[in-house]
Design a protein around this nucleic acid. Sequence first.
DNA 1: ACGCGTTACTAACACGTGTTAGTAGTATAG
DNA 2: CTATACTACTAACACGTGTTAGTAACGCGT
Lengths: 346, 346
Amino acid sequence: MMNARRVTSQDVADAAGVSRTTVSLVLNKVQGAKIREETRQRVIAAARELGYVPDAAARALVSRRAQIIGLVLTRRPDQVTSDGFLTQLLDGLLGVIKQSGLRLLIEIVDPEHQKEAYLELIRAKHIDGVILSGPRYDDDALRTLEEEAFPVVLLGQLPDTNHYSVDINNRVASRIAVEHLLGLGHKEIACITNADLSYTAATERLIGYQEALEAAGLSLNDELVGYGDFSPESGYAAMMELLGRDVRFTAAFIASDEVALGAQAAIRECGLRVPDDIALVGFDDLPLSRYMDPPLTTISVPAVQLARQASTLLIKLLKGEKFYERHVVLKSPLHVRESCGAKLSN
Amino acid sequence: MMNARRVTSQDVADAAGVSRTTVSLVLNKVQGAKIREETRQRVIAAARELGYVPDAAARALVSRRAQIIGLVLTRRPDQVTSDGFLTQLLDGLLGVIKQSGLRLLIEIVDPEHQKEAYLELIRAKHIDGVILSGPRYDDDALRTLEEEAFPVVLLGQLPDTNHYSVDINNRVASRIAVEHLLGLGHKEIACITNADLSYTAATERLIGYQEALEAAGLSLNDELVGYGDFSPESGYAAMMELLGRDVRFTAAFIASDEVALGAQAAIRECGLRVPDDIALVGFDDLPLSRYMDPPLTTISVPAVQLARQASTLLIKLLKGEKFYERHVVLKSPLHVRESCGAKLSN
DNA sequence: ACGCGTTACTAACACGTGTTAGTAGTATAG
DNA sequence: CTATACTACTAACACGTGTTAGTAACGCGT
């Protein structure tokens, strides 16, 4: 039915009355090549006329560049459903990558069953470089990649490796969040993690919480810790469980705004008020957070910036520019709104 | 430093003491091929031993299949930042696509400057098929693709074309949403669109709103219509503007939950209450909507299902199975919560 | 007339795979 | 004993491009 046979560079060459080599030289604007201006125009005209677009596969095969960057997420698909952080990353990544004429391929890897599945993606040279968001301690593939010197940039960090990374300081940010609550007079502060502790960020944030309490001379209580799983549902469930336990707390640090959204609803449904009964501090500063009721006090993670820097860095690596700052750390200040009960000055 | 030279099928052939053809036949499990079991095992062992992974580009070149599906979004990157619908799509798409051994490439196209940029993606055979989310009336590239019989599945609909599509009935859903408000006694109902009217879904939803009013014998008032732009910010701004105008309304239909989130905050900041002063009905039923305060009454769009069906359909098209139902329409019932002020029976 | 350098190209190889056509070797039928 | 059929492979081409090495044509100095 269709099949108007592909237009190849040979067709362009024939139309312009030159060789295929010349077509390639002209269209790729090769520097050293001496081509008469008149010929050049003739080739360009012929290419436009025929609607010639170079074949990506052929080009990738010979140039050994797929012109594709992979975004690897070690999650189950359903953990992506309500991920407000991911969309911010996409904003940043797509903007930068597009500008460089590259494409973004998104690969999701089930952390339980096939942690290392993305290695095949790389071996097949489907992608030129990887941005990995949310590294996990148990990701052995990442260590393998380090040996192979494959271009990788982490959005997050993985101890014991020397991968390029762009991140915030999760531990310090959490400390600041919790210290803010301590400063408001709270002594019993619960915590709900953003994800399970295989994720380095989740562990770091929990440690930050613990450090803040210890520094204030308070003892840790496992009963005050709940576990989230990226989603509002998990926050709802975790908060419900905390409220059902035999512990009292007047504040909670929730290491993800998405999770905090559910937790806040749970508090509300139990007839309690934020911040009067329970003060809340979140983490991420998603676009939605300022529209919550009350607006959520949270750690402001510059997600779009992180993604921009990570992709910019990766693109430089692909161009062969080495020896950059290996670990970029962006600022993540506390954004005080109303959920923590602090008096806003202005 | 690195460069352990790629392992090719020739290397496997040498190691196994057979020809490259045999390697190909074995590893691709070609049906008609007669291969002795012992040889087969030898090849498989050699391949595993050497860590052989076929080169994606070479394979794509010869097989004319990139094994990649493109997800095209006609938006600016910053319009993706807080798109809770997109993450649901990714959930559905990634699940299905992964299972079929394909990959997902995500392409974002600025609707103002380069509407048709994704045509190049297709011409270059970078992708085998396209899922296009949120078609626009002014998308001429889509009409071109129809002539070329390139595999396309729309998440949404585009009049005057016969592309495969998976969608809900936006117009009817909106009518139902607005009729619900009418049934609660509201006579002055505002509307905020989910996006500008170039998007077919935005227009359809607005028409549904208008049809409901007209069917109830009410007159339309342009002053009661505001325009959103995917984001909570836009909903906040639009609602603020509506509240500042010289019109009264006791309810609002907001054609996107994401936008409704901002609108609800605006209402709150003006000292008004939902649903007592202004009843609210949204559209999408994002995961976050049930956690809003009050929980949002909204049209329940089965986003994950839409994505699953769209990708399943596209994959079938790629396999050459034609003649399927061209336009799949899924149900999108009203999900009554509290923001509309209806008494909940249960 | 000859060598030499420059200009404006082109022939031919390489990239790594899938696949078609073919070929020795052995079993089976007449 | 010969013709046929089948088994278990392999040689060689094709996919469409980037690039290296090379070549005619021409001007120029001696």
